[in-house]
């Protein structure tokens, strides 16, 4: 097929293609024998798929966070006074002012325990660091360290989840139920979705640790560790957003 030449006005492209074909010809024709399959982007299919999946997840969390933000303008007084309150339109500045006034007047009784959640957020962020170290270990062939760092990551993640469960229980006891108010529904749904993603990550980490102990997670599988790491970092970043939006911004 190489005898075909470009006949159209796409000369420069033709040249590029010829160069490309030359490169291919330099390699053995059965280039698929290489460790990595040939791909057009030079990125493995798995990794590309993971990035695409995470892109989709961005929209999932984007929609959930937007929902929370939209709802937030409507239960903001509930946060400070436990008083369900309906305002006309989100865009209505007049009402916004009225709400602010009400907040100012209300006796503020914060629901969230910011220091506690800050600590658990810090723990989750640290797990990203240990995940990086785990990936580094597997690329270096240091399987002992791989197990250590994977276990550390999993432990930190589990601690975070324990914190979430504790926090949920406390809120529930204080009267913030799922079905009792818009705040309850929006809060538990958003953080619950994140929690489910963390749990999924923990299962993945557990599988990696198990495989590693069985000596089935070696250098040739480094990409798998990397993929799990990608997912784990994504979940962490999402938490940073959620923490900021739900807990820090009044």
């Amino acid at each position: 097929m190489a005898e075909t030449t470009a006949t159209e006005d796409l000369d420069h492209e033709g040249a590029a293609a010829a160069e490309f074909a030359d490169q291919l010809n330099d390699t053995p024709s059965d280039f698929v024998h290489h460790e990595e399959h040939y791909t057009s982007l030079g990125l493995s299919n798995m990794k590309l798929a993971m990035w695409l999946f995470l892109g989709s997840e961005v929209l999932l969390f984007g929609a959930l966070i937007s929902t929370y933000l939209l709802s937030k303008t409507r239960f903001i007084t509930e946060l400070v006074a436990g008083n369900p309150y309906v305002i006309e339109g989100i865009s209505n500045g007049e009402n916004g002012a009225l709400v602010n006034e009400m907040i100012a007047e209300a006796s503020v009784e914060p629901l969230f325990d910011i220091p506690f959640t800050s600590l658990s957020s810090f723990i989750l962020l640290m797990s990203s660091l240990s995940m990086v170290l785990a990936h580094k270990s597997v690329t270096e062939g240091n399987y002992k360290n791989l197990r250590i760092w994977l276990s550390t990551t999993m432990l930190l993640g589990a601690t975070f989840m324990a914190g979430q469960v504790y926090e949920f229980t406390t809120f529930y006891r204080e009267g913030l139920t799922y079905d009792g108010s818009l705040l309850g529904t929006a809060f538990y749904t958003l953080t619950g979705f994140h929690g489910a993603h963390v749990t999924g990550g923990l299962i993945m980490l557990g599988s990696l640790i198990y495989l590693s102990f069985k000596n089935k997670m070696q250098m040739d599988r480094a990409e798998t560790v990397e993929l799990v790491g990608l997912y784990w970092h994504f979940v962490d970043i999402v938490w940073v957003l959620i923490f900021t939006i739900v807990y820090l911004i009044p």
Partner: peptide, 11 residues
């Protein structure tokens, strides 16, 4: 006029 003051009722 523009706010349902739902002190004592669910809208």
């Amino acid at each position: 006029t523009d706010v349902w003051d739902a002190d004592d009722a669910e809208w």
